[in-house]
Amino acid sequence: MSAADGRVLVDGTRADAVSVFDRGLAYGDGLFETIRLVDGHAPLWTRHMQRLQEGCQRLRLAMPDPALLLREVAVVADDLAQAVVRITLTRGTGPRGYAPPPTPRPTRIVAAFEAPGMRGDAYVQGIRVRWCDTRLARQPLLAGIKHLNRLEQVLARAEWNDPAVVEGLLCDTAGQVISATMANVFAVIDGELVTPAVDECGVAGVGRAEVLASWPGAKVLPLSRETMAGAAEIFLSSSVRGILPVQAVDHTVYVPGPVTRALQQHWRGLGFPMEQA
């Protein structure tokens, strides 16, 4: 992608480069949001802005004006019927060293991409996932927010190259199930919809927030691999890919059930496409 494509804005100007001294590049000092658009509309926009606001508060960054961000999103995603827009916010440039500059000037990057395609059978029959060996470190100060350091996810995703395996599940250093590399995980256990807590590590996905808000009785509880093995249903939630049933975790097979199907229908009601076979 280049500035000529017209799909990247840096601080409101068409560009495709930032300073080599930007703290986002040097230290991962910043945040990002990845937002799915359908015909120019972002159904989960409010939730994305809420998470970005929380992340800015945690990192002590100035929150950009959401109205400005929305205008820039419209510019870069213009004429894309199905788009994914990434908003990246860094602390900007500064002198060498970890100490934040006393008067930071944040860098704001808004870039649009064609939304990734997913086969219809992935939503109907489900996807194959695997357990990853990489573990997520516990750090409550950074847990939940979408900060720029994604090295744990990069290393986890590097563990396999089998195209039949779509995702990998991650545990923390204590062995508790947390998430997939790019999605949150839900399981139906003893008739209850459960998802792990992300207050010590992991990302609090906006798709996860939507599921928790829309499904009465959904619970946030510790989840072990052994408990997951006995689940009646497992699915992944993602603001980009929606509700993806899990067909198998390694050699353990699951069948998409009524909870998964109901939440897929909820996603369609929000305006997201859920391809059918």
Rank of each mutant, 00 (worst) to 15 (best):
D172Q: 12
D172P: 09
T173H: 13
G175W: 12
I178Y: 01
S179A: 08
T181Y: 00
M182S: 11
M182I: 10
V185M: 03
V185I: 10
A187W: 02
V188Q: 03
V188I: 09
G191L: 06
E192T: 07
E192L: 01
L193E: 00
L193G: 00
L193F: 00
V194C: 11
D199E: 09
D199C: 12
C201D: 13
G202H: 01
G202N: 11
V203Q: 14
V203L: 11
A204Y: 04
A204N: 11
A204F: 06
V206Y: 05
V206L: 09
V206K: 03
R208K: 13
V211W: 04
L212Q: 01
S214H: 12
G217A: 12
G217W: 01
G217R: 03
K219R: 08
L221K: 05
P222R: 02
L223W: 01
T227C: 05
G230I: 08
G230L: 08
A231W: 02
A231K: 04
E233A: 05
I234D: 00
I234W: 02
I234E: 00
F235W: 08
L236S: 12
S237E: 13
S239A: 10
V240M: 10
P245S: 08
A248Q: 12
T252A: 15
T252S: 11
T252K: 07
V253H: 13
Y254W: 15
Y254R: 01
V255C: 15
P256Q: 15
G257N: 09
G257F: 03
T260F: 04
T260D: 04
T260R: 05
R261I: 08
R261D: 14
A262R: 09
L263R: 03
Q264R: 06
Q265M: 15
W267N: 04
W267K: 05
R268E: 13
R268I: 15
G269Q: 15
L270D: 06
F272A: 03
F272V: 07
F272N: 05
P273N: 05
Q276K: 08
A277T: 12
